[in-house]
Design a protein around this nucleic acid. Sequence first.
DNA 1: AAGACGAAAGTGGTTGA
DNA 2: TCAACAACTTTCGTCTT
Length: 306
Amino acid sequence: MTYVKKCPECGGINLFWNKDKGEVICKDCGLVIEDKMVDFGQEWREFDSESQSKRRTGAPLTYTQYDQGLGTEVGQKGDLYALGSKERNKFFRLRKWQYRISTAIERNLKLALAELKRVSSYLKLPSSVEEEAARIYTLAVQRGLVRGRSMESVVSGALYAACRRHEVPRTLDELSEASGIEKKEIGRTYRFVTRELGISILPSNPADYIARFASSLKLSAETQSKAVEILDKAQKVELTSGRGPTGIAAAALYVSALIHGEKRTQREVADVAGVTEVTIRNRYKELLEKLKLEKEIKKTKKKKKV
DNA sequence: AAGACGAAAGTGGTTGA
DNA sequence: TCAACAACTTTCGTCTT
């Protein structure tokens, strides 16, 4: 069904088709390849139950615009002078009110969304994620959750949450680097915001990290899928619960690189995964013990010698 | 000499009283 | 609110290739 098979940017094969948005996302580099395909979704769906949210009239609502693309202002000039003086006073009062209410929030939103765009383009996040983050942030502002926190940290928190929900996770470190906010601060606001807004987020799946780590290590597709396979097994023996997903992903990748004779040092893997060698070692050790992978590694060693 | 390995002490976050 | 706790990090010394 997809028309694009490879990412034109990085050549990655991990394309993710987001049907709702009619776009294809490269999970490796985050490139959005939306124009390359026809968007069937909307017309078809018009007839089923949830037509309210999928209606196709009007400009699409977007949260990345500070007023969701729907600006309404209490009248400008125009018929004003046709009104009596009482009416006119009322009019001015209304406009003043609207101005007061809206400016505080809107000014904040304008700034915040600019920041959000900056960070998300730095991280090459797909627009669906950016949109989601903007939505989360907007909600947060409306609930007054930004008070006492810096705007930037809430933006980062929203982005982090959006990434998780869309299964294109970035690590807190990456967010931190892109936004200039401390890692723990992002984590804190992320937790706070998601809790307050009742956003439920699945614990991130290590497999989601594999593609990106693998491509920045320039590992082959086979190695990549082997790593995912290892992850599956690891999950069955409950090696994964309670551990940091990045550490597990990194270890799986390290092992499968060994198996396929594309050796990377622990240091290299650790760097792209944002964990230390020690963590990789620990996970790696566990993997070997529980999944009896030693044989496979030895096999490839022998092959190389012969 | 570089990488892999392991022990020990420290850090930040979660949990349960 | 505090202490216990598990996961992870940092640091450093030793072993392997």
